[in-house]
Simulated assay, not measured.
Amino acid sequence: MRRSAWTLALLGAIVVLALLSVAFGARVVSPGEVWAGLAGSAEGFGEAAVAKRVPRTVLALVAGAALAVSGVVMQGVTRNPLADPGILGVNMGAALAVVVGIAHFGLRSATSFIWVAIAGAALAALVVYAIASLGPNGFHAGAATPLKLALSGAAVSAALASFVSAVILGRNDIASGVRSWQIGGVGGADFGSMAAVAPFLAGGLAVSLLAAKALNSLALGDELAAGLGERVGLARGLASLGAIVLAGAVTALTGPIGFVGLVVPHVVRLLVGSDHRWLLPLSALAGAALLTAADIVGRVVARPAEIDVGIVTALVGAPFFIYIVRRQKVREL
């Protein structure tokens, strides 16, 4: 009953936030203009504003859901409460790959951005895991503790951000667009690019949802999971693939948006528990609501300009990250 109630509450919140998203911005529109704009009219300024806000609202909902699910899976696979596509360097790896593709290979199509972003995200994840797994006696998977993963991810993210700056240095033709995209935002949404990324998001989401049972087993430890019949390596690899595809595909569209995958899973666990069969879908709903709310706040507080959603989520997520670190016993991480 509690889980069903929270599902309904989150669905209601998404509907309300979606309506607020198309109503508020540099220009506030009336309910009549919202209805007319959603019906397809673009005759007045209000209706035109609504029509322009619909794609960004859809992108905020989809991106928030994908990043939240990616965060849940990464936390489950690594048994790391600090895991998040941004903190583990996955988003920045995707961002660097896209920037290199634009600057040196002339990539322009949304589909090419997506493939390159997913490849960059996967490579960054492997690098972070390899660094965190280095111990006194060389490489050892058991050495990749949560704190090591978080620190390795932070270091790799900083290095990759520097590489992005180095790539665009002297490229005035792409510098302004890349810098704006690198902050992370949904303002440039259009249904064409979203249609291109939809199959990747659907595939990543399906793989992640199918991994729910395996993630429940992995939470008990590798030995016990193997005793329950799970093929631990295969389960961890497939779940990680789903998370990386989601994070990489979203980053190709929005730029690197951090902390959604960190904040949402912890909050949803408090509401419905740790069963991934419920945690994954409800995190998708909560992530969609969070990113849409962050986009609304960014448009309202800086009117008539706007604050990119990546900045708003960082303002929320950074204190939450500190809280998680302080709540956990750092020596045990």
Rank of each mutant, 00 (worst) to 15 (best):
H140E: 15
A49M: 13
Y129C: 01
I87H: 06
K148H: 01
G135M: 11
I114Q: 01
K52N: 02
A132W: 13
L134Q: 00
A83C: 12
V98Q: 06
S112Y: 01
T57F: 14
A51Y: 02
R108L: 13
T57L: 09
A97D: 02
A121Y: 07
A48H: 04
A49C: 10
D84Q: 07
Q75I: 08
S41H: 11
Y129N: 02
V116S: 02
R79C: 08
I114P: 10
T145N: 01
V69S: 08
A83Q: 03
A95E: 03
A42R: 12
L61Y: 05
L147R: 03
A68M: 12
N91K: 05
I102D: 03
K52H: 04
L149V: 07
A144F: 07
R53V: 14
G89V: 13
A97M: 11
V54T: 09
R79M: 14
G138C: 08
F139G: 04
A141Y: 03
F113M: 05
T111S: 11
V72Q: 03
L59H: 05
P85W: 06
S109R: 00
R79K: 10
A117N: 05
P136D: 09
G76W: 11
G71A: 10
A95G: 06
A124K: 03
V72S: 11
G71M: 14
I118G: 01
Q75M: 12
T57I: 12
P81S: 02
M74S: 04
S109A: 10
N137R: 14
